[in-house]
Design a protein around this nucleic acid. Sequence first.
DNA 1: CAACTAGCTGTCAGTTCTGACAGGGGGCCT
DNA 2: AGGCCCCCTGTCAGAACTGACAGCTAGTTG
Lengths: 251, 251
Amino acid sequence: MDAILSHLVERLNHLRTQEDFEAFLRGAAEDMGFDMFAYAGGRLAADRVAARTVFQRPPITMSSFPSEWLTHYADEGYFKDDYVVVQSLRAILPEQWHAERGVREIRPRQAQIMREAIDAGLRRGFFVPIHGPANDFGLLNVICHEAETEFSKIVERYKHELHVLAVHFHDAVQKRLPASAGRGARLQLTERESEILRWTAVGKTSWEISEILHITERTVNFHVANSMRKLGVYSRTHAVAKSISLGLTQL
Amino acid sequence: MDAILSHLVERLNHLRTQEDFEAFLRGAAEDMGFDMFAYAGGRLAADRVAARTVFQRPPITMSSFPSEWLTHYADEGYFKDDYVVVQSLRAILPEQWHAERGVREIRPRQAQIMREAIDAGLRRGFFVPIHGPANDFGLLNVICHEAETEFSKIVERYKHELHVLAVHFHDAVQKRLPASAGRGARLQLTERESEILRWTAVGKTSWEISEILHITERTVNFHVANSMRKLGVYSRTHAVAKSISLGLTQL
DNA sequence: CAACTAGCTGTCAGTTCTGACAGGGGGCCT
DNA sequence: AGGCCCCCTGTCAGAACTGACAGCTAGTTG
């Protein structure tokens, strides 16, 4: 394993385009005996109250799933209810899943998704959650058509390799294909703005911040207002929550 | 190697006490040829503006570092400036470090820490950052006294195993020793309180929330006030930021 | 130089929040 | 039954925030 894994990780350094990465993943999954794969990675949105989306912006995705399934999946907004996704969002360890066996605490909608997944040929698989700093998140899901016993054997054999590989893969993809999912028109706060937001986040009033930074209260409000405008929100509280979720209020 | 790794991961399931885990880590590190180890894991504080601490509460720690170094390290508050820690907080991949070689973009204080680390016998090592959902964070650092070439050989051989092991270790520790670092007097928001905080986080005013939840504005303010009191803060904004950082306002 | 950016400051009307004074109802446990 | 907790509601004064009007300096870049 060791040699193979190191070789794979090494190869990651030479990949450049989305197609490179996709081909790489396809090859690796096949070599291990998996029949399909899917990867999604990006930055999580933190304000998911009535969230329709999980990611801030469309994540970078690669998969060999049937296109009808992907379309259906996207149309129905399955992503945020999919058991594999939900579990990945709150777990740190990889895990295997079986659509047929169901899972404890599963909700009706999740069961529905599982049933439809089976029809699409996704019966069982193994997923690796990838968590990084500042809401960085990724998910690798590999599917196997084999019977359960054979599947378990494959998983037992490769789970650690897949784990390591997934993390390296995610890191490489997110570093190398940054503009990719693009269309970000990424907003940026000035130094002053994020500085003031940080103080706001710990409960300082405008007047207090003005004392801290040796500027007038008016100026503090000016910067706060600019931050709010940039973030497209109408209250400091929302601005702080959003900038944290966007990773703009650094650390 | 695979068998060994699987065996180690399997053994993690049987550990119960902090001493169990510490002995486990000591054994694993030694077997791989490392001379010392240190682990720290807990929940990150998100409001780290002028943060003196990195963790919300004292993290679970285990290490075989010299006690004088640990004391000195704690007294001086090195944790938040230590290159290994800083790097772990923003990286997703493990990495080796050499105190002597220094590092790009290193700050004076970091250099100072590195120099003192060398005196304490920490010359080079390998660290694994562990990121989880909801500000879950851990760090495993293993130290090697060998010369650089031998060290590199060891790292090359075991880095992936250490990576996998660290993640599993962290997960087991955090799940199994929850009350441990204890003394949390962990505060808890009621269902209503966190529900209202979530709406507040996305910029809703009290009046709007009252419409959404079909209660009076007064009641919304009542719950917000209770949340603020529990969190020990004096503004909604701070309450939202803090509850997010504490993982109370779920993801 | 003109245009642009980041930072800074002033006033003011209207809205929102905060913390204090009150109170009632339902459920759970001893 | 009494004690707690959670949920809900009312009023009110003072503080804080928001968005609009306005204008200043300094540095960078085409």
